[in-house]
Simulated scan of single mutants.
Amino acid sequence: MSNINLIIEERPRNIGNFMVGRLLPFKDKRMVGPFIFIDHMGPATMTERENMDVPPHPHIGLSTLTYLFEGNIMHKDSLGTEIEILPGQVNWMTAGKGIVHSERTPEYLRHSDKTLHGLQIWVALPKDLEEMECSFFHADEKDLPKWQEGDVSYCLIAGTFKGKASPVPVYSPLYFLEIKSETEQEITIGNDLYGEAGLYILNGSVTGEGHTFEPKQLLVAKDSKLCTFTMAANSTVYIFGGEPLPEDRYIYWNFVATDHEHIEKAKEMWKEQAFVPVPGETDFVPLPPEPSNLKLK
């Protein structure tokens, strides 16, 4: 019997002046463990006249995780954080009761050709921490657990796996793991996973149960304990998931909550510009037109 419950293809989305591939949420699978939102950015090539500019915008009820393969992003937030994100580093911003941030091409790159490629992820907070104080954590590439098993290299970006722990301060049991293979290899990691699990193929291909899967596909497992697959040579995949949160989630724009009232409060606060602003920035992303609120299972 197949252990693949669902195959999710990337869907193009415009996030302002930048196109991304949306993976989560998906109509048939709103969350994988506590992971509630995943965008694949790029790979995008920008000229000296093109830059990434996402003005200040708010979040509640979640942690954001930014992980780059190529390029640079300048992160600024309402805590006063100002830091450049480089490939292999982790930006982990916990919104809690509310935070505002902007994401832009660094000033020194704005008049030159550049590339940008990476993942932007939201992880929902447990219900009792939804309104915690906001915080920010940055991990350098050297701080992340890395190890080699033959021709296969592993990097634990967040959470716990095989007795190892990333320094990223997560708030529920989860894992976000990078696997790279130089040669064709069978990978069996099910006994070290827990909760729900998804496998995202960045490059190369994966074969399992007689089928071959290509880049820009997310495979969701029926049972994380049965996670076995073969990676083609020069492939990179990401395994993510963890224990699912017991409550449903509402998601509206950049807001995530178990209670619809928290969403409405955040909407009114943003309309009135009552969130703490990002120091030195005056522009902002306006609240979008009212869609139907999406309840996530």
Results as ranks from 00 to 15, higher is better:
S292I: 09
I60Y: 01
I85M: 04
L296C: 00
W253T: 15
V237N: 03
G198M: 07
D283T: 10
G204C: 09
G98Q: 06
N254L: 01
K29W: 08
G159Q: 08
F69G: 01
H59G: 02
Y171E: 12
E290W: 02
M93I: 08
R11N: 14
L156P: 00
R249Q: 10
D128T: 10
F26K: 02
L218E: 04
A95M: 07
L65T: 04
P244T: 14
G71R: 04
M46A: 03
G150P: 00
Y154V: 02
Q185N: 07
E130K: 13
L202S: 10
L156G: 09
E182H: 07
L144P: 13
F18H: 14
P291A: 08
N5S: 13
V20I: 15
E10S: 14
H101M: 00
T47W: 04
I121G: 06
K162F: 08
S166A: 01
P246S: 11
E268T: 12
E103R: 00
P126L: 11
P43W: 09
T47D: 14
V285S: 12
L86V: 09
N191E: 11
I251Y: 11
T258I: 10
N17P: 08
I38K: 03
A197V: 09
G208D: 12
F137E: 05
Y175V: 05
V20P: 03
P286L: 13
P12G: 09
C155L: 08
T207A: 07
R104N: 02
L219E: 11
K271W: 05
S2Q: 11
M19I: 14
L86H: 05
P145Y: 08
K146G: 02
H262F: 03
L23N: 15
H75P: 01
L79N: 00
D140G: 14
K146R: 06
A139H: 08
K297L: 15
H262Y: 05
F240P: 00
I83C: 08
G190E: 00
L296N: 07
V152D: 04
E9T: 15
S135A: 15
S166N: 03
E149M: 12
T115C: 06
Q185D: 08
K295N: 10
P25V: 04
N203P: 00
A95K: 11
W122C: 00
I239H: 03
I7E: 11
